[in-house]
Design a protein around this nucleic acid. Structure first.
Lengths: 353, 353
DNA sequence: CCTCTCCATGGAAACGATTCCATCATGCTT
DNA sequence: AAGCATGATGGAATCGTTTCCATGGAGAGG
């Protein structure tokens, strides 16, 4: 366990000052002669600049933070892989946190990142605008992925701004308004995805279509409501809290309370899983008794019998793009990105019986 | 975006020296009177010590690194969740890297962590002992999870040591030997898991049982060989390289080249997924035509029709325990941990037709 | 009452990089 | 040839913390 060489060692061995070494290594100006010598010595001593010194001096830790609700959810696994891929190609570290969908834990993790002086953050938010205010106020560059934080309960203007954001992202005309929470986001085109799915089901003759959502699926629910059109049968819009158990309970409850429904759209893959399980448990055949469209394309969607028809969103790309945004934030002002979704028709939807 | 308060600000506001503030905040000795005042001022200024200064001074970054092959693999998602849970309760950051199962990327990530002075690392290793030598030499506290690195190709003594390790972990008498790569690990009891599965299949009458493995499944293959007993039909032991495509190719190739096999054990869930897909594609019914046991219990195993019989290993616990080990490493010398596996019988195995 | 001990306390030195600024040499212009 | 601009260079300050060490005061024991 030998002590690592410092910039001082290199300077001494090369017979130059530390400033020169630093310049050479970070691309500053130096005479070719000196540059060569320093490089040679550095290589010979196997010198690698310590991030510690640099970080302190620049009062910021490199790299970025990444906050997701649950890595066990394959979609967030894909998203994380995307972020990691981009970070790796930039040689930057990624500090990961899993919030469990709990705003309080999210808040704590933000605090931890602040303490670490990590000033770039990609997040699938669970808390509302209020939860995120401290991060923004501290000057963090934040990029949201997959969804936006709910508007703060208390502050009216924040609410308005977040709403503006939602509408803008959905392509609706945004009312001109100040935007206190001015954070770029990388999201999928939920609206188009849901609309396509609902139209597809309608085309198969389905009239009573249910939506099974979870936390953070606000935009998808809104899109669903819009797609089915008024009047919306509110009993057909149900929610789980995020855990697999609660998703199962919600799905099971839905099927039992409304045996007349003929199709279900789920807002995420955990909900989709729950729907398949609950349907089987209640002896509902897919797609004979009930048709199913799940948000998220995950590898196991193909494994089900029948294979699941899904609204695919590019999880990996979302992560990659978000990481790009957060890294380039210094250069250009990042704008939000909306990625396309695709309805992948497999076998879980059939004509209304 | 206000500047954060430093220890100096606190000291000044409290009318004490910075040393005293530091002591109070890190539990050193101080008079109750001073302590109270410092605490009050710190709270009032919303002071949080910057990890940057501390890290530089102690020449180490807190927290731990985590290296997994692929977060898209649900099992590693579970493992990561375990690590994160433990780290969170300790208030420590986790730096994540995904290696894609590639020793070279793994090596680069180790270098990155070294540069960050992260000196605690949990890894599902992809490279061999040689890949890991630099980390050990640099004084990192490493804990392997799920598997051990393959012995180095070149060094004979390292090979011997790693072999010793393997045998010891499997409960076989280990030949006394020097162990150059002395790294604790948290692994599942692969041997018992595989043996139980093979016995179960034998009990159902199966004679030609195949094993479908991937990189890092060495111990599972070894256990499989031992469980089926000599002579092993080598054509029934096949490998993929880790990607989903290659897993599918391996599974499909196996089924086609040996239509006489009646049961398959897969070394991981990606391979299991591939086996289900390949079987369906070739019109093999599970379990009528072929029985299937998959390593790893993942949520979607229950979704398959029929639900998959699996060898469950506690991914989350493995992560948690590994994190505990790596955090306690300063206190007590960590010993390797072997966690139990469980054969969960669902519907993918039937009597030999 | 003096001294010895112990504890609280603050000043200052690390830690390893970046970066400002002064210095010096070189080469060009007038 | 003198002056000026340009570029290379090294010393020193800086970032925010921990920790070593010296100092001072108070209490206890002689």
């Amino acid at each position: 366990m030998e002590r690592r060489a410092t910039i001082k060692d290199v300077a001494e061995a090369a017979g130059v000052g530390v400033a020169t070494v630093s310049r050479v290594l970070s691309g500053g100006s130096a005479s070719p002669r000196t540059r060569e010598r320093v490089l040679a010595v550095a290589a010979q001593l196997d010198y690698r600049p310590s991030a510690l010194g640099r970080n302190l001096r620049q009062r910021r830790t490199g790299g970025m933070g990444l906050l997701v609700p649950d890595l066990t959810d394959t979609f967030y696994g894909q998203l994380a892989e995307g972020v990691l891929a981009c970070a790796r190609s930039a040689g930057e570290p990624v500090v990961l946190g899993s919030t469990g969908g709990d705003p309080e834990q999210e808040s704590e993790l933000i605090g931890m990142l602040l303490e670490q002086s990590v000033d770039r953050l990609i997040a699938v938010p669970s808390g509302d605008a209020e939860t995120w205010a401290p991060a923004i106020r501290a000057g963090m560059t934040v990029v949201f992925a997959d969804r936006l934080p709910a508007p703060a309960a208390a502050e009216e203007d924040v609410r308005a701004a977040a709403l503006t954001d939602l509408l803008a992202l959905d392509g609706l005309p945004a009312t001109p308004q100040t935007r206190p929470l001015d954070v770029p986001a990388v999201v999928a085109d939920d609206r188009a995805g849901i609309r396509t799915a609902v139209r597809y089901l309608r085309g198969l003759g389905h009239k009573r279509i249910a939506f099974l959502g979870g936390p953070g699926h606000d935009r998808r629910v809104a899109a669903f409501r819009e797609a089915v059109g008024a009047p919306v049968d509110e009993e057909l819009v149900v929610f789980g809290t995020g855990s697999r158990d609660s998703a199962y309970a919600a799905a099971s409850g839905l099927f039992q309370s409304r045996p007349d429904l003929s199709a279900v759209v789920t807002g995420g893959n955990v909900l989709g899983e729950a729907a398949v399980l609950a349907a089987r448990e209640l002896d509902l055949r897919v797609p004979r008794d009930v048709s199913l469209v799940m948000y998220d394309d995950v590898p196991w969607a193909e494994l089900c019998s029948p294979p699941l028809t899904v609204i695919a969103q590019p999880g990996r790309d979302m992560g990659y793009r978000a990481a790009e945004l957060v890294l380039r934030a210094g250069t250009r002002k990042p704008r939000s990105v909306v990625l396309p979704t695709e309805l992948i028709i497999r076998g879980s939807c059939g004509p209304r019986r």
